[in-house]
Amino acid sequence: MAIFQRNTKVKPALCRTGALAVSAALLRHKSAGAGMAIIWMLLVMALFAPWLSPHDPNEQDLYHVLQGPSRAHLLGTDDVGRDLLSRVLYGARISLIVGLLSTLTATVIGVFLGLVAGYKGGLIDGFIMRLTDTVMCIPGLILLLVMAAALGPGIHNIIIAISALGWTVFARITRGQVLMVRELPYVEAARAAGASGWRIMFQHLLPNSMAPLIVASSITVGGAIMLESAAAFLGLGVQPPTPSWGEALRVGYSYLEIVPLFSLAPGLMITLAVLAFNFLGDGLRDVLDPRLRGEGDKIK
């Protein structure tokens, strides 16, 4: 795989077995290994929730509301008597779907705009870059709240809103890479020789920009999960009765004194998820981009 050729000097194993070797290197990286473990756990939770859950997450039991942990309900019950453990397990679905989907759309939008900006240059470039500056100067959560208010709550709108905020990072990375690749002698030479600019750009761009894009994606997934839960915590996210960690946190917060687990457990899951993707991003940066390692752990 071309992506890893740059690392030949540092870890010769990388270029031979590609993705597998990266995974191996990640597992050796302490924090990235921990991150991957948590992400696997979340994936298992989301995929196998129906089999893992002791109860139907939406089954209400009004005789047993707001109960502490017991044999029947390991984490207790919520305000309408639903089993908390089951809801926490199912909650992984919303967080992962929102996190992954919105990052995917954000990446597509960002890479596209970055390509256009870097390749076309001039006014279009100026416009796109000023647009990223503009979006970036209003904190994501606040824009998200306003957009959630404008579009209405619900998972689709949350994904749209987060994508509409998250693309800026990818646009910047891609544009930077395009500008760099453009100046490479062989690209200029190929263009002078009449080869299609776009094709050559893509050929050289992809391997160059993959590493920073993957790192940024991982961190964006964490950020998206955090934003989704924050919106849900403020009552603007996924609507009940869909099990969601942020929503559980919102309701559970009012019962903190009676059943602390009601809010503490879903909150812990959100924290773990965000932490896992940040750890993974950190590890990916170290493994994929040895150039950055010398600079310590700057976030670019």
Binding site: G222, S229, L249, G267, L268, T271, V274, L275, N278
Partner: peptide, 13 residues
């Protein structure tokens, strides 16, 4: 990293 990642609302709770 934990400090950077921890959601404000959960830390508050």
């Amino acid at each position: 990293i934990t400090g950077v990642s921890i959601p404000v609302f959960w830390e508050g709770i």
